[in-house]
Simulated scan of single mutants.
Amino acid sequence: MTDEIYPDPTCECRALLAEGQDRCHKCRARDRWVKKQAAKRRDGRRRGETRRPPRTSRRAAMAGVTWT
C-alpha cells in the first residue's frame, strides 16, 4: 500500500509547504499581484468632474466659469 495516512501538506499548485504555511511563495505573490491590479483598475477611473480640454486648470474660476 502506497497511500500515506498523513500526507505532506501541499499548496493548491501542488507545491510542498513548510510547517505553518498555508500557501506557497508563488501563490501568495500571485494573490498580491491580483489585489494590486484590481486596486489600480479601481483607482484609475476618472474623477466625478466635468470634462475639460487638456492642459487647462481643474479649478472652475481659472477655467473661466462664473457662477452668477
Rank of each mutant, 00 (worst) to 15 (best):
G20W: 04
A38H: 09
G44A: 12
R52S: 10
R47E: 13
T2D: 15
D22L: 05
R47H: 09
R52L: 08
R51T: 12
R30I: 05
D31L: 10
H25K: 11
K35G: 11
R45S: 07
H25Q: 13
D43W: 02
W67D: 11
A63K: 15
P53L: 06
P7A: 05
E4Q: 11
K40H: 12
T66W: 02
D31V: 05
K26T: 12
R32H: 04
R23Q: 11
G48N: 15
L17V: 01
R51V: 12
P9E: 01
T68I: 09
C13E: 06
G44L: 05
K36P: 00
T10C: 09
L17N: 02
V65Q: 07
T56C: 13
G20D: 10
Q21I: 00
E19Q: 11
R58P: 07
L16H: 04
A15W: 00
M62H: 12
P9D: 03
T50M: 09
A60Q: 06
A60I: 05
E12Y: 04
A29D: 09
A29R: 09
Q21Y: 01
M1N: 14
T2Q: 11
R47V: 10
R58A: 14
C11P: 05
G48Y: 10
P53W: 01
R14E: 11
C24M: 03
K35D: 14
R52D: 03
G48D: 15
A63D: 12
T50P: 11
R55P: 00
T10G: 00
L17S: 03
P53T: 06
G64V: 08
A38T: 08
A39P: 01
R28T: 06
P9S: 08
G64F: 05
M62A: 12
E4R: 03
E19K: 13
R23E: 13
R42P: 00
H25E: 15
P9I: 00
T66P: 00
Q37T: 07
R30L: 13
D8T: 10
Y6S: 07
E12C: 04
R59P: 00
W33H: 06
D22H: 09
R30Q: 14
V34C: 01
A61Q: 08
I5M: 10
R55V: 04
R47P: 07
S57W: 03
Q37K: 11
P7G: 04
G44M: 06
D3F: 15
G64Q: 05
C24N: 01
V34L: 11
T68P: 15
T10Q: 14
W33S: 09
